[in-house]
């Protein structure tokens, strides 16, 4: 590329130019807007407008078409917090988060540590460990539906081998949420594993070398080097899993339909039913607002308390 002396080229806009019209002065922002226009339009229509519209709708009763009819203030919210069904749904959601998030993170960390060993053929194992990332919610749920099948499924056959009586996994209120959680953890593992493995591979190897010289053992290194250096990645994956868990829908729809006795009626599934089966957009919008606030609060708490323990370089 021919490099000319910048001062001799009149084309380069310079701040010293005496006369600049408004058009010229705002040139960068015009170009920027052109580049940003597709995103700005799409975000406005499909993200920002719906957010405000949902908040607006949550203060109204709505008709069959989803149009607001009567302003009721906070009535939708008050009714929700007085409804046993909705409180149960919040409880089930929190239980589900508790069952799935820590387990997913711990198991994927364990898998990543294993798959980070330098062994022949380790790439094959990495691929297998990541495989659930390539399986959709629908395909995974239908597969696990069969695994949990009380008579034909492999799980009951296995436990009966050990003399444990048949469990009706998805129809028994004691087990259903746990069964859905197992499916979800399996689904999460692929993505979490890949991210954590990437985090492990980014740790500076010289840290291990110098501590090995000092005679540090594997678990000492794990506690003193690996976990602290990995903490930003672990924090990231925790936050993502947490937000995902709050948004679970497909597993519920296919595995339990919210049952038995509403024990797996997680919030997004409840919203789906209120909005698109009962066409009560006002109530459903209020539920969305509550879900959104819950996610926001939990994420903020995460940032406030957990991030303190994160070690940034």
């Amino acid at each position: 590329m021919a490099m000319e002396n910048p001062t001799s080229t009149g084309k380069v806009p310079s701040l010293n130019m005496p006369y600049r019209t408004f058009w010229e002065k705002t040139r960068p922002i015009q170009v920027a807007i052109l580049f940003l226009l597709p995103s700005l339009i799409l975000f406005s229509v499909f993200v920002f407008y719906p957010l405000f519209r949902t908040i607006y709708l949550s203060f109204f009763l709505t008709n069959q078409k989803g149009l607001p009819t009567v302003f009721v203030g906070f009535d939708n919210f008050i009714q929700l917090f007085q409804s046993a069904d909705f409180l149960q749904s919040i409880e089930a959601t929190f239980l589900f988060v508790l069952y799935t998030v820590p387990a997913s993170v711990v198991i994927s960390l364990f898998l990543a540590l294993l798959a980070n060993e330098k062994l022949k053929g380790i790439h094959f194992f990495r691929t297998i460990f990541a495989s659930s990332l390539g399986v959709s919610v629908a395909a995974a749920s239908v597969t696990w539906l069969f695994i949990f099948n009380p008579t034909m499924g492999v799980l009951n056959r296995m436990i009966s081998f050990f003399g444990i009586p048949e469990i009706n996994w998805l129809a028994d209120p004691h087990w259903a949420l746990l069964a859905v959680s197992i499916t979800t953890i399996w689904l999460n593992l692929g993505f979490s594993f890949l991210i954590i493995l990437g985090g492990l591979q980014n740790i500076d190897q010289s840290l291990y070398e110098s501590s090995s010289i000092d005679g540090a053992g594997y678990f000492y290194q794990l506690r003193r080097i690996t976990i602290p250096m990995l903490s930003p990645t672990l924090f990231f994956i925790m936050t993502v899993s947490l937000i995902n868990a709050f948004q679970t829908f497909g597993q519920i729809d296919l595995l339990t339909g919210g049952g038995p006795g509403q024990t797996t009626n997680l919030m997004v599934y409840a919203i789906y039913k209120d909005a698109f089966v009962n066409f009560n957009f006002g109530k459903a919008s209020a539920e969305v607002v509550i879900l959104f606030l819950l996610i926001l609060i939990v994420t903020l708490l995460q940032f406030k308390f957990v991030e303190k323990k994160v070690h940034y370089q």
């Binding site: 920002f48 957010l51 709708l57 989803g66 709050f246 948004q247 994420t299």
Partner: peptide, 30 residues
């Protein structure tokens, strides 16, 4: 491109990551 309000716009973009898609399905469906 250096333009005024770049920081703000970027922040606005990133903040949409906090909004779950489910939060907007009802108006989006309409």
């Amino acid at each position: 491109i250096e333009f005024r309000g770049r920081q703000f716009l970027f922040f606005l973009f990133v903040s949409t990551m906090m909004i779950p898609w489910e939060a907007s399905i009802i108006p989006n469906f309409v």
